[in-house]
Each structure stands twice: as structure tokens, then as C-alpha cells.
Lab assay of single mutants.
Amino acid sequence: GQVHVGDTTYHFPNPEEARKFAEKAAKENNLQVTQHGNTFKVE
């Protein structure tokens, strides 16, 4: 799974890890998570 936060892309071998990371980043920054397959975008 990939997580895009601003201009930075994080790669995770496990989509579940990617999702947890995205949700945590979104919560900390008052942002939203959008999911496209195994790619998550925090914005």
C-alpha cells in the first residue's frame, strides 16, 4: 500500500499498515483520508 501525504509518498508492504498510518496522519493533522484501491491519500 502507498500513502500520499502532501508531496511525500510512504510505501508499506501491507495495505492494512498503510491504512492505519493514513488514518493516524489524518487525525493528527485534521485532514481526510481518501482510498483508491491500496493507495491512500491524506489531504
Rank of each mutant, 00 (worst) to 15 (best):
G1H: 12
G1I: 11
G1F: 15
G1L: 05
G1W: 15
G1K: 03
G1P: 10
G1Y: 15
G1R: 04
G1V: 11
G1N: 08
G1A: 15
G1D: 04
G1M: 09
Q2W: 15
Q2T: 15
Q2S: 13
Q2A: 10
Q2C: 15
Q2L: 14
Q2I: 15
Q2N: 07
V3Q: 01
V3E: 01
V3F: 03
V3M: 02
V3Y: 01
V3L: 02
V3N: 00
V3S: 01
V3D: 00
V3A: 04
V3G: 01
V3H: 01
H4R: 12
H4S: 09
H4N: 08
H4A: 06
H4Y: 12
H4I: 15
H4G: 04
H4E: 12
V5C: 13
V5H: 07
V5F: 15
V5P: 00
V5A: 04
V5Y: 13
V5D: 04
V5T: 04
V5I: 15
V5L: 13
V5M: 14
V5S: 03
V5Q: 04
V5R: 04
G6W: 10
G6T: 04
G6Y: 10
G6C: 11
G6F: 13
G6I: 05
G6R: 07
G6E: 05
G6L: 08
G6A: 06
G6D: 05
D7A: 12
D7G: 14
D7H: 13
D7C: 15
D7I: 09
D7L: 11
D7W: 11
D7E: 11
D7P: 09
D7K: 13
D7N: 14
T8R: 15
T8E: 11
T8F: 13
T8Y: 13
T8H: 13
T8M: 14
T8N: 11
T9A: 06
T9P: 03
T9W: 14
T9R: 07
T9M: 10
T9L: 12
T9S: 06
T9N: 04
T9Y: 09
Y10F: 10
Y10T: 02
Y10R: 03
Y10G: 00
Y10K: 02
Y10D: 00
Y10S: 01
Y10A: 00
H11V: 10
H11E: 07
H11C: 14
H11Q: 08
H11F: 14
H11D: 07
H11L: 11
H11S: 09
H11N: 10
H11T: 10
H11I: 11
H11M: 10
H11W: 14
H11Y: 15
H11G: 04
H11K: 08
F12A: 01
F12Q: 02
F12P: 00
F12D: 00
F12E: 01
F12M: 03
F12V: 01
F12S: 01
F12N: 01
P13H: 09
P13I: 10
P13L: 10
P13E: 13
P13G: 09
P13W: 07
P13V: 10
P13K: 12
N14L: 04
N14E: 05
N14Q: 04
N14V: 04
N14F: 05
N14M: 04
N14D: 11
N14K: 04
N14C: 07
P15T: 14
P15L: 15
P15V: 15
P15Y: 14
P15E: 13
P15F: 15
E16Y: 09
E16V: 07
E16P: 03
E16D: 11
E16R: 06
E16T: 08
E16L: 08
E16Q: 08
E17D: 11
E17C: 11
E17V: 07
E17R: 04
E17N: 05
E17A: 11
E17G: 04
E17K: 04
E17H: 05
E17T: 08
A18P: 00
A18L: 00
A18E: 00
A18H: 00
A18N: 00
A18I: 00
A18K: 00
R19V: 03
R19C: 08
R19L: 07
R19S: 04
R19A: 06
R19M: 06
R19D: 00
R19Y: 06
R19F: 07
R19K: 09
R19W: 06
R19T: 01
K20W: 09
K20L: 13
K20H: 08
K20E: 10
K20F: 09
K20Q: 12
F21H: 02
F21T: 00
F21P: 00
F21W: 09
F21C: 03
F21L: 00
F21K: 00
A22R: 01
A22D: 00
A22G: 01
A22F: 02
A22V: 02
A22E: 00
A22I: 03
A22N: 01
A22K: 01
A22T: 01
A22Q: 00
E23A: 09
E23T: 08
E23Y: 14
E23C: 14
E23M: 13
E23L: 12
E23S: 06
E23Q: 10
E23I: 12
E23W: 12
K24Q: 12
K24L: 11
K24T: 09
K24S: 09
K24G: 06
K24Y: 11
K24M: 12
K24I: 10
A25I: 15
A25H: 14
A25R: 10
A25S: 08
A25V: 15
A25F: 15
A25L: 15
A25P: 01
A25N: 06
A26H: 01
A26K: 02
A26M: 03
A26E: 01
A26R: 02
A26W: 02
A26F: 02
K27Q: 11
K27R: 13
K27V: 08
K27P: 00
K27I: 10
K27W: 09
K27Y: 10
K27T: 08
E28A: 12
E28S: 08
E28R: 11
E28Y: 10
E28W: 10
E28C: 13
E28N: 08
E28Q: 11
E28M: 11
N29W: 14
N29D: 07
N29V: 06
N29K: 12
N29S: 11
N29G: 12
N29F: 15
N29T: 08
N29E: 07
N29Q: 12
N29M: 15
N29R: 13
N29P: 04
N29A: 13
N30W: 06
N30K: 09
N30Q: 08
N30M: 08
N30L: 06
N30R: 08
N30I: 04
N30T: 05
N30F: 08
N30V: 04
N30E: 06
N30G: 14
L31N: 05
L31P: 02
L31S: 10
L31T: 08
L31E: 05
L31K: 06
L31Y: 08
Q32E: 08
Q32T: 14
Q32W: 11
Q32R: 14
Q32D: 06
Q32N: 10
Q32M: 13
Q32V: 14
Q32S: 12
Q32F: 13
V33I: 11
V33S: 03
V33H: 03
V33C: 09
V33Y: 09
V33Q: 02
T34G: 03
T34D: 04
T34L: 08
T34Y: 12
T34A: 06
T34V: 12
T34F: 13
T34K: 09
T34N: 06
Q35D: 03
Q35P: 04
Q35L: 06
Q35I: 09
Q35G: 05
Q35A: 08
Q35F: 06
Q35V: 11
Q35W: 07
Q35R: 13
H36P: 01
H36D: 12
H36G: 04
H36L: 12
H36T: 11
H36Q: 11
H36M: 12
H36C: 15
H36R: 09
H36K: 10
G37V: 03
G37N: 06
G37E: 06
G37Q: 05
G37A: 05
G37P: 01
G37H: 05
G37I: 03
N38L: 05
N38K: 05
N38I: 05
N38C: 07
N38F: 07
N38P: 05
N38R: 05
N38H: 07
T39G: 05
T39E: 10
T39N: 09
T39Q: 09
T39A: 10
T39S: 12
F40Q: 02
F40I: 04
F40A: 03
F40R: 00
F40P: 02
F40V: 06
F40K: 00
F40G: 03
F40H: 02
F40N: 03
K41G: 04
K41F: 15
K41S: 11
K41L: 14
K41A: 08
K41H: 15
K41D: 07
K41T: 15
K41N: 10
K41W: 15
V42G: 03
V42W: 01
V42H: 03
V42F: 03
V42A: 03
V42T: 04
V42I: 09
V42N: 03
E43W: 14
E43K: 06
E43A: 12
E43T: 11
E43L: 11
E43G: 14
E43C: 14
E43D: 10
